[in-house]
């Protein structure tokens, strides 16, 4: 049996090797042959889901809502203590030191990530900035967004917190954080297609990663040192309800 495992494209670049290590270890532990899919963009992710029989998805929370409610997936696990947060940053010496300093007509650079944009917009509501008030500069990567900011081509930039923290020390020294979200209850989730009947060995292998040194090493590579915890159907539904409140 071969199954397809898709990883949402918004992980930090240095985690790439970790996902391949995870795939190798899960195959060994579960006895299932797993084909790893790592789309480079949300668009490519959608194409893969439409075109292939994707059995398991490590999904970002907003995509997970659609996948659970409309595409026949169920949430089975999530990384423990690793919620999805975002950072709004400005150039270090720009004079923009707080969200209040961002005004109507400002330019914000960001990679194409719907979740980060949505959470960022919710944070900007507090200073009366709406999506239409902002000039958006969509970059290929978060690193490109940081370069835009440092060159003075944007007033602020949005980042996934994990990616922001992984930027080089030199890059970080030229930026300052205006705000970081602390939503806690929202995280990536592991989804299994309802029609994938023999998912138990896979799920067991995933949930027991912390039990072996080999598994611990993979979790470290993924920045998920606490491992995965099981999710009930209600846990998934609760997160979807929560995200529903953030849509507008």
């Amino acid at each position: 049996m071969t199954i397809n495992l898709l990883i949402a494209p918004d992980f930090a670049p240095e985690r790439f090797a970790g996902w391949h290590m995870l795939n190798t270890l899960l195959q060994k532990k579960s006895g299932i042959h797993i084909h790893l899919l790592t789309p480079a963009s949300a668009h490519e992710q959608n194409d893969l889901i439409q075109a292939q029989n994707v059995d398991i998805i490590y999904a970002n929370p907003f995509d997970a809502a659609t996948m659970i409610r409309e595409q026949g997936y169920r949430a089975v696990a999530r990384p423990l203590g690793k919620s999805d947060e975002m950072v709004i940053a400005a150039k270090a010496d720009s004079g923009i030191v707080a969200l209040d300093d961002l005004k109507v007509g400002c330019t914000i650079a960001m990679a194409d990530n719907r979740d980060v944009k949505l959470i960022g917009l919710r944070l900007l509501e507090a200073v009366d900035l709406l999506e239409a008030d902002i000039t958006w500069k969509v970059t290929e990567t978060y690193q490109a967004a940081a370069r835009n900011l440092i060159k003075g081509e944007a007033d602020a930039a949005f980042f996934l917190s994990e990616v922001y923290d992984s930027l080089s020390r030199l890059t970080l020294s030229q930026m300052q954080v205006l705000i970081e979200s602390d939503l806690s209850d929202i995280s990536h989730v592991l989804l299994v297609k309802e029609s994938f009947a023999d998912s138990e060995p896979f799920i067991d292998a995933l949930l027991s990663l912390k039990d072996t040194a080999e598994g611990e090493q993979v979790l470290q590579e993924l920045g998920m040192s606490d491992g995965f915890e099981p999710m009930t159907q209600e846990d998934g539904e609760f997160m979807i309800d929560l995200m529903d409140t953030l849509l507008d």
Partner: peptide, 28 residues
Amino acid sequence: VYATAVPNIRHGETVGYTSVRRKPSRSK
């Protein structure tokens, strides 16, 4: 707060409600 409340619908039935609050602006 700026509050958003949604019904928790499970299998077509409302079983409770979730309220999520965000920071409101001073003008609002």
